[in-house]
Structure formats: C-alpha cells, structure tokens
Design a protein around this nucleic acid. Structure first.
Lengths: 150, 150
DNA sequence: CTGCAATCTCAACTTAACTTGAGGTCAAGC
DNA sequence: GCTTGACCTCAAGTTAAGTTGAGATTGCAG
C-alpha cells in the first residue's frame, strides 16, 4: 500500500458543508481568506480535519457577534498551525470571544437604558437629551458615519 | 420681499453633517435611499428641518442595532410625511427599536451562557455540545451561511 | 470500464453602504 | 462684483462577504 491519506479521518468539502451548514463556496472562500487550510487529496481535492468543523463553527459564532472575517482570522491565528487544537486551545479562544460578548451586551444594555430614559422623560426636544442629541458628543473622528453611542 | 424659505428654521447639509456626525456624502446617499427628504433652496441646495437631525440620529442607532437601511426605511415610513414628527411619533418608533434591542440582548445572553457551559464542561468533544456541534441543528435552510445559534 | 455526482480553478457578478472625483453652481464676505 | 468655500449632479470606485457559471477533473458504484 502506497503512502496515502487515511480517508477515515479526513472529510471532503461536501461533508464539511453538510456538517457546518455552510455552503461549499463559502468554505472555499474562507480558505482563500486563510481561515482554514485543508490538505489536498491525490487528485487535488480538499480534505478537512474533523477539528475544522470546530474552526468553522467558531467562525459562525464570531460573525454572529459582529466580528469581521479579518478579526476572526486574528483570533484563529492563535490556534496551532500543524496539530489539531486541544481543548485548552479552544478554551483560550472562547474566553476571548466571551469577553467580546460581554462588551457587546453591556453596550446594548446601555443603549437600551438611555433610550428608556428618553422615552420616559419626553426629552426628545433635541436640546437636552444625550441620546438624541449627538452634537458635541461625536464631531470629528475621521470620515464615514461616526459612532453615535458607546 | 419675495416668498422665501425662512432660513432661520432650515439647515444646510453641512450644518446637518456637523450636528449628526455623518458625512455629507452619506446624507446625500440617505436621501437617495429615501430615508430623508429635505426641501430645496432657491439655488437647489438641500435644506433640512431640525427634526431631520432626530431622524438621522435614529438611523445611526438603528444601524448600530444591526438593521439594514431598508429595514430602517420601513420603520421611518411610520413617521408623518409632511409635518415635523411629534414626541408621540417618536415614542412609537423608539418602542419598536427598544423591542429589537431586548431581543438582541436576550440572544447574546443566551449565546454567552451556552459558551460558558461549553468552557465549563469541557465538552468541546464535538459530539455532545450544542454550541460547537451544529450538525442536526441547522442542516438545510437555503444557501449561504445558515445561522448557527438562536 | 463507464457513468455521474462531487470537486477543482478562475473570473465575473451581487448587495450593502458609502466614498471619491470631475465638472459646474451658489452665496456670503470684502 | 469678485473670490472662495460650500453645494450640486452623476458616474465610477471600494470593501465585505459571498455566489454563480464555465470548463475541466476526480472518484466511487455498478
């Protein structure tokens, strides 16, 4: 028997797509963006580790959280290159995400409270309310729509 | 004195940009998308009502919340066309946004709790954990990356 | 073998949300 | 009444995140 990849441990792109719910094209796109690096079969087809499912799931969660693929790549870069990530590896990276999650929740809660204040006090007069009266708060911070809250 | 717009109550696009923190081009873009409808001066320059500042602030908040401009347009469509929106008008629309906010906070909180569960139980084994094991949960729901959580 | 579904690459298209640039007009101060 | 900065329109460019399609291979099942 020639040196061949053990098919038992490797998954085709279709298989991975089925398991993650991603489309095949999205997975190829992620490879392009270096978010995953599958190996290739003799016939040049992609072969994925089982741990890549986790990697892709992580991408989905992080996106949900509002991270861009670029930011996600940065997080994933913390994972080992060659070997399958261990539980400990994932713990670290999950903790980072968890921090983001906390931040975002806090931010939205703040926004909600401010909004409640506005509705409650009827201050929509535009001259007194912090939330509806961005003036002063933001001003110059470069081009594009600058952030209103937070 | 010919019939002229009272300059005292109307703002130029530059003024509006300054007060909202938006760029001039973004404001023109929003007009294109029918999110605001300024009147025109004799010389064809845009003139905004003071209440348009509120309108634009609302857009910024809603975007922050993850609404697309199209969705925002739908919300804003509830506001009166001709007249300056009243406090009551804004109350209604703010309440809609507040509901979204609640939803989103709840969703993120759920995600956080699940993530905590995963980190805590060390179940990253991929066969037992709901969050890391999308399989079964999602499967077929049309093209594109389907949602993992929620 | 043969067939056919699954893959492959590469280029082009899509949508959202803006920005940039070219070429021309308005209006307010001196 | 001129100059200069703020505006105007319209077309094209940009980034993110994918999708779609063409044309060529691969690989498993019978």
């Amino acid at each position: 028997m020639p040196t061949r990849l053990k098919p038992s441990d490797l998954l085709s792109i279709g298989e991975i797509a089925r398991r993650t719910g991603l489309s095949v094209s999205a997975i190829r796109f992620y490879e392009d963006k270096r978010l995953i690096e599958p190996v290739r079969s003799g016939g040049n087809q992609r072969r994925f580790l089982r741990s890549d499912i986790r990697r892709l799931s992580f991408i989905l969660i992080a996106q949900r959280l509002g991270l861009s693929l670029t930011e996600i790549e940065a997080e994933l870069a913390k994972l080992p290159q060659g070997r399958t990530p261990t539980t400990r590896d994932w713990e670290a990276i999950s903790a980072a995400i968890r921090a983001r999650l906390d931040e975002r929740i806090a931010e939205l809660t703040r926004t909600r409270d401010r909004l409640d204040g506005c509705i409650g006090c009827g201050c929509l007069s535009l001259t007194h309310c912090a939330i509806w009266n961005p003036e002063d708060q933001l001003a110059e911070q470069g081009p594009g729509p600058r952030k209103l809250l937070g």
